[in-house]
Structure formats: C-alpha cells, structure tokens
C-alpha cells in the first residue's frame, strides 16, 4: 500500500519517472507452476549430463577412433568398436525409409488431394492409431509373420535380419510420415491449386507440378522426423534384427543397431567398467544423431510455414 502511494507521489513530483506498470509481484503459486514447467527441462538436462559424463570416458580409456570406427564389439575380448552398430542402424533405417517414404507420400497425397471428406475423416484417425500401438507388439507380430516366413518359406537360416527389422520399422514410421506430409500438403494455399486449374491443368498435373513442389520442405520434414523415430526405435529392432557385432553390409543377415546394443549389453556390463562406458558412449552417439535429425526436421517445418505466411500476404 505504502509502495503504491509512493509511486503516485513520485509521479506527481517527477513527470520524467518511468513506472513499470506491467510488472507483477511473483506469488507462491507462480513458483509452483514454474517448477512444474521446469521439471521436464531439468530432466532433459540431467539425462544429457549423466549420459555425457559416463560416455566421454570411453575416449581416454579406449580411444576415440578405435571406439567410433572399430569393426568389432566383443565383450570377452574387450573390443568395443561401434561401427558395426552404426552401419546396422543405417541399414535398418534406410530399408525403412525406402519403403515408408514412397508409401507414406502416396498415402498423404491420397488423403489430402483425392479422398472424399468422409474417407479422410475415417482413415486419418486410424492411421494415427498405428502410431499408438506399442512397439513390442510390432516386434512380436513381425517375428510371428515375417521372421517365420523368411525361415520357413524362403529357407533363411535366421529370419531375423536388417531387412526384417527395416520392413516392420517402415510400418511403424508410416503414421509420422503420413500425418506430417498430409498436413504440409493441406497447407498449400488453395490459390495455387485454383491458379493451376484455371490454366486447364488436371488434378494430377496440379498435384504433381504445383502442390508437391510447393510443399517440398514440409515433406522433407516429414521424412526426417520419420527417420528420427526409426533411429530411436528399440524394442521391435531388438526383436527382429537378429544381432551381429561384426561389420557387414548384407541386409539379409542379422545386425545390431545402437539401440539394440545398449539394450543387450547394459545388463551385463559392470558399472564403471570400460564396457559400461562404451555403452554410454554409444548412447551419446545415438543422442547426437537423433538430436540433429529432429533439429533439422523442426527447422524445415518452420521454414515451410514461414514460406506460406510470406506468400499469402
């Protein structure tokens, strides 16, 4: 009260005084809400610090080059090269992308450009449900169908291969790709389509030559965020990729990915050992990759929405 009086006195006495009328007193409730909001930020930072603190030690203990480019992970012989797992991750994710990108793009084109409103309203939620199926179920069903098919019908010694994991993974990342691609196609202003139709273009010409190029950065973002999901996926890959800790590029043989390596080796490594640090080192590499991928995806989405805000003014 006295404070307020003082301000009005100040105002009366000195017309030059600037009063911060927008400044609010911080209350107890504000602090509680702030803490709740900060919780996830704090956890992210702590996880990051913890992973890096445990992981960086592999560099002095084992050597950066040997760790990153070593051709073999062999715990009994104390070999901790993660290149086979990096290659395994790339193989699995590439297979998933080769399948999911064309299928996802076509599905999004259908939903956004061709499907009648009613079909769209039914299909889109179902596609989104795909994303909410727990990955262990994908892993299990992939094992029951694809793995056994490869073994029993095609005569593979083991049906758990990079290919198997990639195929199942492609289905898992489809909803991400379809949803974001559909949103970005829908965001293309109607004025472009009308301009194209007014020139006598067919629906297909309009989609292919105007709508798709106009949404290219949004589509790329969809692919990259799909990538991000695929790289981080663990359970299904653990189930289906078999395993192989030696460097090899054959997609029809078992591989380990960074995630499946961590899942398999962490329970066996004693805390503080070189292997333990190597596993955290692998986690750091994984962290770095997914962080970059998501960052690029976000930047592309931002650029995309900015492009159309600029265009529609």
């Amino acid at each position: 009260m006295s404070e307020q009086q003082q301000t009005s006195d100040d105002l009366a006495s000195d017309e030059e005084t600037i009063i911060a009328i927008g400044k609010q007193k911080i209350s107890f409730q504000h602090v509680v809400l702030l803490l709740a909001a900060s919780l996830s930020v704090i956890i992210v930072v702590l996880v990051f610090i913890f992973t890096v603190l445990e992981g960086y030690r592999i560099i002095p203990e084992y050597g950066f080059i040997d760790f990153l480019f070593g051709h073999e992970w062999d715990s009994p012989h104390e070999q901790y090269g993660i290149l086979p797992m990096i290659v395994g991750t790339i193989l699995v994710v590439l297979i998933a992308a080769v399948i999911a990108i064309p299928v996802g793009t076509m599905a999004a084109m259908y939903l956004s450009e061709i499907a009648p409103e009613i079909v769209r309203k039914i299909m889109k939620p179902i596609i989104e449900i795909l994303a909410s199926i727990p990955s262990i179920i994908y892993g299990f069903i992939g094992w029951r169908t694809l793995v056994l098919f490869l073994q029993n019908q095609l005569g593979f010694k083991s049906g758990r291969t990079a290919f198997t994991a990639g195929v199942v993974l492609s289905i898992m990342i489809l909803p991400t790709i379809i949803t974001i691609a559909d949103d970005s196609l829908k965001a293309v202003p109607r004025a472009y389509r009308e301009g194209s139709f007014a020139l006598g273009a067919t629906n297909w010409q309009t989609i292919r030559k105007v709508v798709l190029p106009a949404s290219s950065s949004g589509l790329t973002a969809a692919y990259i965020l799909g990538f991000g999901r695929a790289i981080g996926e663990t359970m299904a890959v653990y189930f289906l990729a078999g395993g192989g800790k030696n460097l090899q590029w054959n997609i029809f043989r078992g591989v380990d990915t960074l995630t499946s390596l961590i899942l398999k080796q962490l329970p066996e490594a004693s805390i503080g050992s070189v292997e333990y640090h190597a596993i955290f080192g692998a986690a750091c590499v994984l962290f770095l990759i997914t962080f970059c991928v998501n960052l690029i995806g976000d930047l592309l989405i931002r650029r995309f929405s900015k492009k159309f805000r600029g265009a529609s003014k």
Binding site: A191, Y192, E194
Partner: peptide
C-alpha cells in the same frame, strides 16, 4: 483464362 483477386504466382 482467369486472373484472381490476390496475385497467386506459383512458388517457382
């Protein structure tokens, strides 16, 4: 042919 209210060149 048609010319619209808002200029709508294609993003090309």
């Amino acid at each position: 042919g048609m010319v619209f209210q808002k200029p709508n060149p294609f993003p090309m």
